[in-house]
Simulated assay, not measured.
Amino acid sequence: MQALSRSRFYLWNLGLPLLCAALVFLMFDMTKIDIAFSDLFFDPVSQSFPLDHSHLFEKITHKWARIIPNWTGELALIGLLLSFVWPLFKGARFGRGKALLEKIRVAPVLRFTARHRRDFLFVVVAFALCTGAIHYLKGHTSVYCPVETTQYAGKIEHKEWYQNFELLKTAGDGRCWPGGHASGGFTMLALYFVARRYRWRHSKALLHGSLLLGFVYGTTRVLQGWHYMSHTFWAGIVVWLTCLLVALLFYGRERLEQPVLAHAEPGPDPSAVPITAADR
């Protein structure tokens, strides 16, 4: 039974993304579907992508959109740093300090961060490794964006990522594969794994929302000529696999595969839960 559960977990969380990778490779990288899709948004008369010249579209979909993943990462980092504060007040000699923190209602926040230190650290590490993986692939494949290629009035010949791939050295100046902006939305998948750890009944909604955010981020850049559609799919696959690996290291498979709770289980007041040795 345990072996069946383990197989099912890896089939859905590892096997399915790898299958998606194979399909994306065959359907996009080995065909001209990417170019055919981008052609729909290219104006041959002006030799440009009209939406690339819309300042409002750029501000809303590219500049402002960064706020969501950026603030999430920053809040996780702040939470991680605050998680070390409450354990400093243990002991009788800090009684007055604890009383003051309770009075100004800061103590509950500090206790919360201390209890969830592992979760904050997971989000920080997952965000960092996802960003690192995307940047590594960008530098070691040297794929140029559509607007930079001769296909769309640019100067560089279009090549697929596997034609330039270098494992240990920079492949060139191109930095378009996988989609960086899309990966920013997909990094929110880290929150899904935290939700799975706690068996939160809305974890699937968080999963679908994170996937939708990544696809929206990626598609808007396709409309502007700064990515092909397959770049978005590849970004999602890379980010998912990276988050999965980090989640397995932090939480373990058994914790992640537990069924979600149909209803919130009653428990003690979170502000009254003491800090254990494991939380310090």
Rank of each mutant, 00 (worst) to 15 (best):
A92M: 03
P44I: 06
A92G: 04
A36T: 08
I78S: 07
A36K: 15
D39A: 13
S48Q: 13
S83C: 03
M30K: 14
P69K: 07
S54M: 07
F41M: 13
G79Q: 08
S38M: 07
E102M: 06
A36M: 08
F49D: 08
E74A: 14
D29M: 04
A76H: 02
F25W: 15
D39Q: 13
A76V: 02
P44D: 11
L100S: 00
R96T: 05
K98L: 07
K59V: 13
A99Y: 13
I33E: 05
D39F: 01
D34H: 09
L77W: 04
W64L: 14
Q47D: 09
R66C: 00
M30A: 12
E74T: 05
K98Y: 08
W64Q: 01
K90I: 03
L56V: 13
L51K: 03
L88M: 15
W71L: 10
H55A: 14
I35F: 12
L51T: 04
F89M: 06
F25A: 12
F37G: 02
A99H: 09
G73M: 01
G95A: 15
L26W: 03
G97R: 02
G73V: 01
K63R: 05
G95D: 14
F37D: 06
P44S: 05
V45H: 10
K90R: 15
G91I: 03
E74D: 04
G79R: 12
K63E: 11
L88N: 03
L77N: 06
G79N: 02
I67R: 00
A76Q: 01
V85F: 09
S83W: 08
F28S: 11
T72Q: 01
L81Y: 01
I33H: 14
T31I: 07
G91Y: 00
S83G: 07
W86P: 00
I78D: 00
H55N: 11
L82W: 02
I67M: 05
K90Y: 10
W71F: 08
K32P: 01
K32N: 14
F49N: 13
V45C: 01
L81D: 00
H53C: 09
L51D: 02
P44Y: 13
F42C: 05
I67T: 09
D52Q: 10
E58R: 04
A107G: 08
A92Q: 12
F94C: 01
K103C: 13
F57K: 01
